[in-house]
Design a protein around this nucleic acid. Sequence first.
DNA 1: CCAGGTTTTCGCCTTCCGGGCGAAAACGTG
DNA 2: CACGTTTTCGCCCGGAAGGCGAAAACCTGG
Lengths: 207, 207
Amino acid sequence: MLWERAREPHAHRWSLPGGGLGADEDVEASIRRQLAEKVDVRQLSHVEQLAVFSAPTRVPGPRVVATAFLGLVPSDTDPVVPSDTAWHPVDALPATAFDHEAIILRARHRLASKLSYTNLGFALAPPSFTISALRSLYSAALGYKVSATNLQRVLSRRGLLEPTGGVAPVGPSGGRPAALFRFVSREMRVTDPFAVLRPPAGRSLGM
Amino acid sequence: MLWERAREPHAHRWSLPGGGLGADEDVEASIRRQLAEKVDVRQLSHVEQLAVFSAPTRVPGPRVVATAFLGLVPSDTDPVVPSDTAWHPVDALPATAFDHEAIILRARHRLASKLSYTNLGFALAPPSFTISALRSLYSAALGYKVSATNLQRVLSRRGLLEPTGGVAPVGPSGGRPAALFRFVSREMRVTDPFAVLRPPAGRSLGM
DNA sequence: CCAGGTTTTCGCCTTCCGGGCGAAAACGTG
DNA sequence: CACGTTTTCGCCCGGAAGGCGAAAACCTGG
């Protein structure tokens, strides 16, 4: 979601929502406030810090240090956005302001990585969905086609997915009706990757 | 590596090296400068941003926003540190100042994770080493024992490790002399984890 | 110089997971 | 009721983690 700058510098270029840090909030509270006030996004299914962008010349004028965030909402959310703001498909972005293109690239990379080794898909998906719909989400986020067969198997084997029991209405062209699924948990957890000798079951650093 | 605060607030508690951001540097240049000037660490084998810590009350007095870094040096480096500064084993840290304990916990967690799915071990190890020595490093960083057999096999299979040809001198208690190894690359690269249908060989987002 | 202890290294085996493929199931339509 | 479509399931393969024990290569003491 981007908004189009009206004034210089970088007039008519699109930029990420954000704003200054208030005296009584931390950076996460700040970005949540900005999104709620400016683009009506109040229910973020996932928020995490991306990185600090601090090059002295990243914006004209006085030095601005930005903490970039990755924020996700389910694919069916449709906030009431101002007229200068709009959704853009991530593989066809317009010209962006300042270093925002670099920030977006980092965000895309982070999302793609975490989709592979966490259950972060829950943050993009609606409460219930078909495997085909989930496949579309994953393909869009990852940038390449994924197999529905494999997606279901991998997520199921990790214990992340469970059937709701319901089925989706069939489309105009027929076909077997798709079963509906949901994510078992809607809090992020990492799928222990290969672990160079797994800990003796229990030992970890916490977090 | 921590230094002991002499003055209030938090006198006699230990704190992470760091300092203010200069006008003509970004945050990474800043932390490199701080480490070089204050604790004589000039050759960092790896540096990466950890997170921003920005709670309004994290330090007494005026608001301070900190960008925390994870910085690694090979285990054989021995910089000339001031008298109030010292190395501490990570599993027996003294009382730390402000929110530095939380920062350290994050750093340990990040390091442990990346040791599993990247070649980041090179940043902790000297140019050449035995498997036993590497095992000690990994065990210390991960917080649990790893098997030397598995460590060598996994790292070798990933193409990260190669034998130098030399052998280490044997200890006073005998035993077969250990072969020396080195990391193939000393730049960080991720070991493609399971990828929910791997991309068609080549397709990626870059970075 | 040989027996016994120590440390490292190698090979074999098992289990588990990603990945591909094709058949079967379950719907529409003409 | 035959046919196309979409989803789902089962079967198989290869590769990687993980465990275990034997073999290799060194030391020391008798």
